[in-house]
Amino acid sequence: MDHFIILIRSISAFLLLLVIARILGKQTLSNMNFHDFVTAVIMGAIAANLAFNEKMEVMHLIISLVVFTGTSYLLSKLNLKSRRMRLLAEGSPTVLIEGGKILEQNLEKNKLTLDSLNQTLRQKDVFDINEVEYALLEVNGQVSVMKKKKFRTVTLDDIHLINNKKERLPIELIMDGKLLEENINLNNAPRDHLFKVLTTQHKQISDVFYAVLGSDGRLYIDYYNDQLKHPVDIE
Rank of each mutant, 00 (worst) to 15 (best):
Thr69Phe: 04
Ser116Ile: 11
Thr94Arg: 04
Lys101Phe: 08
Val132Asn: 00
Phe4Asp: 11
Asn225Tyr: 14
Ser116Leu: 11
Asn187Leu: 03
Ile11Leu: 15
Ile184Lys: 03
Val38Thr: 12
Leu198Gln: 05
Leu87Ser: 14
Arg122Glu: 00
Asp207Ile: 02
Thr120Met: 14
Leu87Gly: 07
Leu179Glu: 06
Gln119Tyr: 11
Glu172Val: 12
Lys77Gln: 13
Asp115Val: 10
Glu138Leu: 04
Ser64Trp: 08
Phe209Asp: 08
Thr39Arg: 03
Leu136Asp: 07
Leu228Phe: 10
Asn79Tyr: 07
Glu131Thr: 08
Ile5Lys: 00
Thr69Ile: 03
Val154Glu: 07
Ile42Ser: 14
Arg9Ser: 04
Ile5Met: 08
Pro170Lys: 06
Glu235Asn: 13
Phe14Gln: 03
Gly99Met: 09
Met43Pro: 02
Asp176Thr: 07
Tyr224Ala: 05
Leu136Thr: 12
Ile221Lys: 04
Lys149Gly: 14
Val154Thr: 14
Val154Cys: 05
Ile46Asp: 01
Ile162Arg: 12
Met56Ile: 14
Ile5Gln: 09
Asn118Lys: 13
Gly217Gln: 07
Asp36Ser: 03
Tyr220Trp: 07
Ala47Met: 06
Leu29Trp: 10
Leu7Asn: 13
Thr153His: 09
Asn188Tyr: 09
Gly91Thr: 06
Asn33Asp: 10
Asn187Pro: 05
Leu219Ser: 00
Met146Asn: 10
Gln142Thr: 13
Asp128Phe: 11
Val95Tyr: 04
Ile159Ser: 02
Lys229Asn: 15
Ala40Thr: 12
Phe127Tyr: 15
Asn130Arg: 15
Asn79Gly: 12
Met1His: 08
Leu17His: 00
Leu117Cys: 06
Thr120Ile: 09
Ile221Pro: 06
Arg86Phe: 06
Asp233Asn: 14
Lys148Ser: 06
Ser206Gln: 11
Gly141Trp: 02
Tyr73Ile: 03
Lys101Arg: 15
Leu169Gly: 01
Gly44Gln: 05
Thr71Ala: 13
Val95Ala: 09
Glu90Thr: 11
Asp128Arg: 11
Arg191Tyr: 15
Glu133Lys: 09
Gln105Pro: 09
Gln227Cys: 10
Val132Ile: 02
Arg86Ala: 14
Ala45Glu: 15
Ala89Trp: 03
Phe4Glu: 15
His60Thr: 10
Val67Glu: 01
Val197Met: 09
Phe127Pro: 00
His230Thr: 13
Phe68Met: 11
Ile97Lys: 00
Leu29Ser: 13
Ile97Asn: 00
Ile129Phe: 05
Glu167Leu: 13
Ile11Gly: 08
Tyr223Met: 12
Met146Gln: 10
Asn118Gly: 06
Asn49Met: 10
Gly214Phe: 02
Ala21Asp: 04
Ala40Val: 09
Asn79Ser: 14
Met56Gly: 07
Glu235Asp: 15
Leu24Val: 05
Val19Glu: 08
Ala13Leu: 03
Leu80Pro: 02
Ile23Lys: 09
Leu121Ile: 02
Lys55Val: 15
Phe34Pro: 01
Leu18Trp: 07
Pro231Cys: 04
His60Gly: 09
Arg152Val: 02
Leu18Tyr: 10
Met85His: 09
Asn140Ile: 03
Thr120Arg: 14
Lys148Tyr: 06
Leu80Val: 08
Ala40Lys: 07
Phe34Cys: 08
Leu112Ile: 03
